[in-house]
Design a protein around this nucleic acid. Structure first.
Lengths: 222, 222
DNA sequence: ACCTGAACACCGTTCAAGT
DNA sequence: ACCTGAACACCGTTCAAGT
């Protein structure tokens, strides 16, 4: 289509892109519960049918928003010559994206073999090849890394959902730690003991520690 | 309350237990979408208010169903004298439970630091202590194992949701593999190459391989 | 104390009708 | 081709009223 010869289009013309963009704004501002078709139509000043013209249904729309965020992460991840370092960078990129958009975490762990996950899988896999992991072990290794990342993603999303809008993090961890410590010591000795460490642990660091554990395990296969 | 002196109660008297039990039946039979309060009231021959008398809301009910399934898993897991073997047994127990009740996978990865997850965390943690992992490393190690388990759980649930009721597994994997192979080879070399292995891989084996990778990483810390 | 069920305030999705 | 918006068939949750 020739931009020069076409009439100037309404700057707010509807498109899947613009719908996805708006959906992301709503999700960021109000979370998953706020992202309804009514909120979308209000914000886009249109009818429900207009959105369905560009998007099959809500699931597809949510998948597209997730894909959008993850694509950006995978594009922005700095290229590192050290494959292990590159895997850490991918993982941290996703972690930070979910920190900024908690709903992505929930969406990632709801989606199956699709789009967004494949992006991650592909990024990790390339580094596994560079690491010299034997062919037969690459599938299991990549799958383990991705599953772990998705697991943490889901947890982070769940925590964000639980948190009353911008709670103080220290206060939150304190509350959780107190709850953990309340459990019957006879049945929960480990949890009780760990409760103390919960208060001043760093989610991001712990996430990376997990990645490193898996990488150490993978190194074993070489 | 004295059972002898009280009048015989209706055998179908309502209780949280019975509500949870019925909810599980509905979830098993029809999946998460089928588990509505209307389905529950119909099955229990009661009104919505009666259920709310025993349960705060749907989230609490779903958490209770998950807790119920996981508690059973953790109770049934055979005690093994080898801590690594015990961790494998816990992980496989959860895997099989989610295979039987796919909705548990979705629920687990939606819930935060709560109940069901703590059960798993505690079970794994005890074995980490038995393994002789230093105190400071136990938290990260346990958290990595649990995150990985939850990640796989979520994926399995997502796959089950995708699957048209009792699809042939081979046909399903074939379809996924074909889709993977369709991706642009320039952008998805790894995925394309792995597509072949997808067809005859075993989810359960792959899950266990991931656990072993993490265990191998943890062994490094000793 | 426990249960009933109509009513409320929402949803996602469809579809005849418009331009 | 693309958009409008009323209508449909659902939801979870509440609450006055019953026993």
């Amino acid at each position: 289509m020739d931009i020069v010869t076409t009439h100037a289009r309404r700057s707010d013309a509807l498109s899947k892109e613009r719908i996805v963009e708006t959906a992301i704004e709503i999700l960021d501002a109000g979370g998953e519960r706020a992202m309804t078709f009514r909120a979308l139509t209000a914000r886009l000043a249109t009818g429900a049918g207009a959105i369905y013209w560009h998007v099959a249904n809500k699931d597809e729309l949510l998948a597209a928003t997730t894909e959008d965020v993850i694509t950006r992460v995978m594009t922005d991840v700095p290229d590192d010559s050290d494959p292990e370092e590159a895997i850490r960078a991918i993982a941290l990129g996703i972690f930070d994206a979910i920190d900024a958009h908690p709903w992505v975490g929930a969406q990632l762990s709801r989606e199956p073999w699709h789009s967004a996950m494949l992006h991650i899988f592909e990024g990790v896999g390339a580094q596994l090849q560079a690491l010299g992991i034997p062919q037969r072990a690459q599938f299991n290794s990549g799958s383990a890394l991705v599953s772990y990342i998705l697991g943490v993603a889901g947890q982070n999303a769940a925590n964000a959902r639980l948190l009353p809008r911008d709670t103080d993090r220290t206060a939150f961890l304190d509350a959780v730690a107190t709850k953990w410590a309340e459990h019957d010591p006879a049945h929960y000795p480990f949890t009780r003991q760990i409760a103390a460490q919960l208060r001043d642990h760093d989610d991001r660091e712990q996430f990376l520690a997990g990645i490193d554990l898996i990488l150490a395990g993978i190194a074993t296969l070489r």
